[in-house]
Design a binder for these strands. Structure first.
Length: 753
DNA sequence: CACCGTTAAGTTTTT
DNA sequence: CTTAACGGTG
């Protein structure tokens, strides 16, 4: 029997109300996941529901993994067939097994946003419209908007969201859809709408799933869009055992299509719903909860909840007024340093900012103070050029119709097939309503209908070579050869590796390293997946791009986390810094005069940020901030005004702090020691001093072979190799821990020991 | 076709 | 200030 003793009365009710529609409004830190896990455990163990009959949908893979692990920990039975998955992964899996209904084949490719954008661009190009006249992004937003509403071509919408065929973008939508169809591909939004379409056109398929899933559960319900809501409604249409869990106050993705009406109107759709509110917070101090509540209660578009906690009063919130953004960053570094000395491990601290651009300044100061940190989010591994190139090869192996992949790699490395030739082939493909691959494969064959296409013999022969390679790879894949072997074959036999190697610059090194990491990822996938197929790998990385495999060894005390407020949702830290709490920054300038709806979302964001903190919350802002090249004086955020005065202390940092640093860190006049505060060593090229320094040392290497040097991040090491001089000087250093790294001297923070 | 200089714009990104 | 993306040139 499942033990419910550790649950509070509402949580208990949330577990026990298994039948009929239930909406759980779970405030921040209210033990939501615990409740969900117990609910599922209860269904499995006490109500004898088979794992096969349960479906739990989440938004992120991380949430799905966490829930699955916790359930596996709780129950004794095998939870292998338990479907705890993301909306997109669920749809992808379903579509692969039912693909034939929609004229897709099961090996369809999933296009990410970047690929969708590439298609939008090519549609414009095809019509001879410059991207200056029409921004491809606008077309995409339009298409995305339709898909978020659950629209697919020809769908009859019940309550709005219908496409208006007279809209100037509607044509693009239709063309985009047929382009994807020709490529045997779906985009993220299309994964959802395709399932809706499947269910509407083939009720017998829907019935199968309705019969199978006796209990359906949706996490982060506030983030669902209309399409996802439609899907849920269909799935649970028969038994109506639907349980949604969300918090309207944490809805921060409306710009991605999340429709807060899904929460606000749930009762209209399911009049017999049981609404439960988890209002007790187990995370934060009374002070933090009260402050956050005061802020969020200004919002009008909410169902209303009142958070409370049994936790202690705690410290006052610290509001810190800084002179400028630089001082703000210095304050963060000093304070995290102080906290650390006082016994708080770095991993318990986090800095939240509204936009990524704010990270840099903070990173700089943390580095200066040698505080361990990590930036969560940021540039994605799989979006790097070399990675996308290699993945395109692999995708083409799986799905021959993937024209986007073909056009990406047909001339990488150079095969003499430039834009013009590619253009010819593309036109031919469109005219014949076939795929690029089809044309390319047949072009060399004199008997084929495409042999008339005028291309030089040289191009034709390199195309044939390309076709042969891909076909060989396909053969390997069909014979269940390990993905890593296929990958290595492409890398080398496509000429890509040699092509990269031919370049000797600094960036190439990083690229080659990234390709190694990709191999690493594939190998790791092979070890962990039940059936390690190439298509499985590709799906994992498009639908779960965060599956970190490059998580290196972390320092024992952890690292201070730096992330956007969006990235912070669902996390908690004992000490949290909300930075840049200024008008036009947080709230963002984009939302400041875009009306109350946008402002309410900013307020929810601020609320999310505040409620991450368990023990102490810092809110900082700068009087003046460098924004778009000039100093702006925005004034403190309106959200600060919304916090009752008795809950915070206001500290105004005195003037510029820099003088302090120069005194304590300038290294006693030793010119050789690396001084991070010394402007002359920063990598600003517009700084005359730097130019001068480089010129002076032009004729001899600054760090000759054998020299003992100190790198500000990696510590002491020995120069193993040195090539070039002046601005082009490159050194290879072996560090104390045995690691070997290469640096461009002009970029690297290295000094002689 | 690759490189460079000019130009314009500048949130957030679970999948 | 930065960065991406376009268009012109060698």
């Amino acid at each position: 029997m499942t033990n419910l003793d550790s649950l509070n009365p509402v949580q208990k009710q949330a577990v026990l109300s298994t039948d009929g529609p239930v909406m759980i409004l779970a405030g921040a830190g209210s033990g939501k996941t615990k409740t969900l896990v117990t609910r599922i455990t209860y269904l499995l163990e006490d109500k004898n529901v088979s794992p096969h009959q349960l479906l739990a949908l989440t938004f992120s893979n991380k949430a799905a993994r966490e829930m699955r692990e916790r359930i596996a920990h709780e129950v004794t039975m095998d939870v292998g067939s338990l479907q705890i998955t993301t909306f997109h992964a669920f749809c992808a899996k379903l579509l692969r097994s039912e693909a034939n209904f929609l004229g897709l084949s099961r090996n369809f490719t999933i296009y990410d946003d970047g690929e969708s954008k590439a298609i939008a661009k090519s549609l414009l190009e095809r019509r001879g419209i410059s991207t200056k006249e029409i921004n491809p992004y606008d077309i995409l937003s339009y298409i995305d908007g339709l898909k978020n509403n659950g629209y697919y071509p020809g769908r009859v919408m019940v309550d709005g969201g219908e496409a208006d065929p007279s809209d100037e973008f509607f044509g693009y939508f239709e063309e985009y859809e047929s382009e994807l169809h020709r490529a045997n591909a779906l985009d993220f939004g299309g994964l959802i709408t395709a399932v809706i379409q499947l269910f509407e056109k083939f009720p017998e398929v829907l019935q199968r799933y309705q019969n199978r899933f006796v209990y359906v559960l949706v996490d982060e319900y506030q983030d669902t869009n209309r399409a996802q809501f439609d899907l849920i409604r269909m799935l649970c249409g028969k038994r109506r055992n639907i349980c949604v869990v969300g918090d309207e106050d944490q809805s921060i993705y409306s710009w991605r299509g999340a429709d807060i009406r899904n929460i606000l109107d749930f009762e209209k759709i399911f009049p017999d719903v049981t609404v439960l509110k988890l209002e007790q917070n187990y995370r934060s101090s009374k002070t933090i909860i009260e402050a956050a509540s005061c802020v969020i209660e200004r919002n009008t578009m909410r169902k209303g909840k009142h958070m409370w906690t049994d936790n202690p009063e705690g410290d006052a919130i610290e509001i810190v007024e800084c002179f400028n953004d630089k001082d703000e960053a210095e304050f963060i570094a000093q304070e995290t340093g102080k906290l650390y000395k006082a016994g708080t491990p770095y991993k318990e601290m986090a800095v939240f900012y509204r936009s990524n651009a704010q990270a840099r300044q903070i990173e700089d100061s943390l580095r200066k103070y040698k505080i361990q940190y990590r930036v969560v989010g940021g540039v994605k591994f799989y979006e790097r050029k070399e990675i996308k190139d290699m993945l395109s090869y692999l995708r083409l192996v799986i799905n021959a119709k993937d024209s986007l992949a073909v056009s990406r790699i047909i001339n990488v490395p150079a095969r003499g097939v430039g834009a013009t030739s590619l253009r010819k082939l593309e036109v031919e493909a469109v005219n014949n309503n076939t795929s690029l691959w089809d044309i390319i494969e047949k072009i060399g064959d004199h008997t084929s209908e495409f042999s008339h296409i005028k291309l030089s013999a040289k191009i034709k022969s390199s195309l044939t070579e390309f076709v042969t390679l891909i076909n060989e790879l396909r053969h390997l894949d069909q014979n269940k050869v390990k993905p890593s072997i296929i990958y290595e074959k492409v890398l080398h036999e496509s000429g890509y590796y040699a092509f990269l190697k031919a370049n000797k610059d600094y960036e190439t090194l990083a690229r080659l390293e990234n390709l190694d990491e990709l191999l690493n990822a594939i190998t790791q996938f092979e070890e962990s997946a039940e059936v390690p197929t190439l298509s499985g790998f590709l799906e994992t990385i498009t639908l779960d791009s965060n599956s970190d495999f490059d998580e290196g060894a972390k320092p024992a005390d952890g690292e201070v986390s730096l992330m956007t407020v969006h990235g912070a949702k669902g996390l908690e830290f004992t000490h949290a810094f909300v930075v840049g709490a200024e008008e036009n920054v947080f709230p963002s300038y984009r939302s400041v005069d875009s009306g109350e709806i946008a402002m309410e979302e900013e307020r929810r964001l601020f609320y999310v940020a505040m409620t991450r903190a368990m023990i102490k919350l810092y809110i900082t802002f700068a009087q003046g901030r460098m924004l778009f090249g000039q100093v702006k004086f925005n004034g403190p955020s309106r959200f600060i005004d919304e916090i009752p005065e008795k809950l915070f202390t206001w500290k105004k940092l005195k003037g510029r702090q820099e003088d302090h640093f120069n005194q304590s860190y300038s290294g006693g006049g030793n010119q050789k020691s690396f001084d991070p505060y010394d402007q002359s060593q920063d990598s600003h090229y517009d700084n005359e001093e730097v130019v001068y320094q480089i010129k002076e040392s032009y004729y001899q290497p600054k760090f000759p072979k054998g020299a003992i040097v100190v790198h500000s991040l990696y510590g002491q090491g020995k120069v193993e190799d040195s090539e070039g001089s002046g601005a082009d000087e490159k050194v290879s250093i072996k560090f104390a821990d045995g690691a070997r790294k290469k640096f461009m001297v002009k970029f690297a923070p290295i000094v002689m020991a």
